[in-house]
Design a protein around this nucleic acid. Structure first.
Lengths: 144, 144
DNA sequence: CTACGTGCAAAAGCTTTGCATGCGT
DNA sequence: ACGCATGCAAAGCTTTTGCACGTAG
């Protein structure tokens, strides 16, 4: 959860190098995303408020945008409504979402390798696997 | 655009068989979706109003829900915000969305066959290809 | 004649924006 | 000291909901 391309506190330097300021809120919000795994802005807000109750929703939205711009978090659409954010601390992955039990599973990008290759050669399309979400029915829910 | 599993006016019978009533608005909204190809509820409303200016937004939402329940239309998320609806008149397909030029391309499900198979065998997950949207960069926008 | 579907208006989410103040650099 | 980031409040959108009326069956 804390290792990966940006282990330790390197991201703080990168943040500042890009002209951003390092604030408690930004640390808190990034930590919240990492703790939660997959979370909507609303859930991130709630988690952040456990530590600093005064944190504001607009700060969460603005911060998630900044963090995503820096490549520290990503978002995907795991429901028809809210976007959900996750840390890019670990390796890249895409998501399976069961329409029946709502469970979310993370999958290695390699599994989609064939599709990516086909899209590249047949459609000249370079896909962003990390943003991919596949809806369907999971093993348990598909049982007869 | 008018052929497929439900060619002609067969859908009207199915509609009634399911206990629904056949109203001008329902015809109009289905026609709007077919005319537009891919459209947000808002766009569907605008198109429907070209014929019947009194059509209401809530009717569009309610009707799209009914039509989707009957399998006459489907929706996918082609932008981070609005859902877009399309007719299921033609054959099933999934979507590629270019983040640069915003263009949408429809792709034959067969292209994703490998992925589906892998998800089924490796994760016991039965994917719904028709709802799939892959984000990335299209051929033209990827040129150096 | 029934009761489902529609239009209208208001409510409910969720996200964005304008400002004055606070704080990181 | 400068100016970006935050909190607060209000506005903006999209979607949902409650009701009374209209109309399909």
């Amino acid at each position: 959860m804390t290792d990966g391309p940006d282990a330790g506190g390197d991201w703080r330097s990168r943040l500042r190098e890009q002209g951003y300021r390092l604030t408690p809120q930004r640390e808190l919000i990034l930590a919240a995303v990492e703790t939660l795994g997959h979370a909507t802005p609303d859930e991130v807000l709630a988690e952040a408020r456990r530590t600093a109750p005064s944190v504001n929703a607009s700060t969460v939205y603005r911060t998630l945008e900044v963090l995503e711009g820096l490549g520290l978090v990503r978002h995907a659409h795991l429901s028809d409504r809210a976007p959900t954010y996750h840390s890019v601390g670990g390796r890249e992955h895409f998501h399976l979402k069961c329409r029946n039990c709502q469970r979310v599973e993370s999958v290695d990008p390699e599994v989609a390798g064939g599709l990516l290759e086909a899209l590249r050669t047949q459609h000249g399309f370079v896909a962003d696997v990390g943003h991919l979400t596949v809806f369907g029915r999971c093993e348990t829910c598909e049982e007869p």
